[in-house]
Design a protein around this nucleic acid. Structure first.
Lengths: 245, 245
DNA sequence: TGGGATTTGTACGTATGTATA
DNA sequence: TTATACATACGTACAAATCCC
């Protein structure tokens, strides 16, 4: 027998001006009811129209809404699939706010930095208790690569990203990993409006080494301090920009 | 003279299969370039079509994408406006994930609780240092109202929400407030799948009083403990459900 | 290699519900 | 109440991408 499948629910009688929202709900229900996982195929647009009882325009607009939340993913000429359920929407949302606040006002950026620091400091003891020697070595490697690249005048964005993800990885929380990724991306998008000078880059790179060493030595107090120091350059750049503006 | 206004950029020559994304970018650019604020009106759909040079379908789908991120807000029969830039998308995204993970697996819920606790504990000292006597009184009032309602067998969801928002309010960070609101909502949506017993509710309510008292007395250590205790009932309910599943 | 079938992307026309003056 | 402006919804036609035989 084929796998039992919960069908899509037709709309039938719904007030005007709510078709799209209803279609959104139907598609979400369909995914939940059938316990679909990221990558699983959804019915084609035509099938969705027939099953739900809405026009293709309504279905397409609903699908676009879900796509913005990464609940579904649409591939041109191929089909519609369950999305990867990332926090891409959070990145979009916060990054736009950061850019909208403008050149002079870096409030959003400052608040993002504050949250990042709070999370990393707050999880210090758990990071120390859940990292292995291999983790320590990897973190030190990444930190040293950042220093080398900074000294050569190269950027080390991607290495920095990997470092902060690696920091959270041992905690085994998808949510923490994705929040880290999201906030990191927001900062990466918005921070360039600060136009920080290279010396700050070099200092920031070196301060990652202190973080890695504190973890390796299992010193929680040192780790919290190192994390705070590491965010200091960005903080001061924000404060400086605020004085200029 | 009227206010100078940066116009919408036409698309002109763009690869097929990217119209909608281009329109999304144009609208975002338009908002940023004109420094529009939440509630400010955007051009009508017709005007957007003409100015950008895309069909109504493309424009509508693009607007729906932006609406999902709360970057724009559409009012039927009235017009399109800049959205309130909330984290509604984060709530949608996480809540869906929580519901999708199913009755048996409350991983997402557990991770949300972990993040909430980490943030509140990590901000303990700042909460203590930034609250006034009026804040202390208000927090105690809310906590006591929760106890009363719990004793009467009523739910105290809304009071709980206000309590946790009030906790973050003195820190003056929009982002922290909205993250608090978002995570709270996710928990409020997903937690009912746990079907916790009333005794846990009463205990949870009482533990809010301990939080409020610790803040009033300025004891950071007590506050961190009280926060951890306050999340203990949910944690154990999650663990219990995990054993059952 | 190619070509046809499937599926999504774009465009346009029309009718209708909704909000405001 | 009427008039106007606006978003909502449906249907059709065709373009473009992907897949498979």
């Amino acid at each position: 027998m084929t796998t039992d499948q919960t069908p899509l629910t037709p709309i039938v009688p719904v007030a005007f001006g709510q078709r799209r929202q209803e279609v959104v709900a139907r598609i979400k229900d369909y995914i939940v009811a059938n316990s679909l996982k990221p990558g699983d195929p959804l019915p084609t647009e035509t099938e969705l129209c027939e099953a739900i009882g809405a026009s293709r325009s309504s279905v397409r607009e609903a699908v676009k809404t879900l796509a913005a939340l990464d609940i579904v993913e649409v591939r041109h000429g191929h089909g519609t699939f369950v999305g990867s359920l990332s926090l891409a929407a959070l990145v979009e949302s916060l990054a736009f706010r950061g850019l909208l606040s403008g050149e002079d006002d870096h409030r959003v950026l400052g608040q993002v930095v504050e949250v990042r620091q709070t999370l990393e400091q707050g999880l210090s003891s758990q990071i120390i208790n859940n990292t292995t020697r291999a983790d320590h070595a990897r973190l030190l490697d990444l930190a040293q690569e950042m220093v080398e690249r900074a000294d050569r005048g190269e950027d080390f964005l991607e290495v920095d990203r990997q470092f902060h993800l690696k920091l959270m990885e041992p905690l085994g929380s998808d949510l923490l990993l994705q929040l880290t990724e999201a906030f990191w991306q927001v900062q990466a998008i918005v921070a360039p409006t600060l136009r920080p000078e290279p010396p700050a880059h070099i200092l920031t790179a070196r301060l990652h080494v202190a973080i890695a060493e504190a973890i390796a030595q299992g010193d929680e107090s040192d780790l919290r301090t190192a994390i705070a120091d590491h965010y200091a350059p960005v903080r001061s750049a924000i404060a400086q920009a605020h004085r200029r503006g």
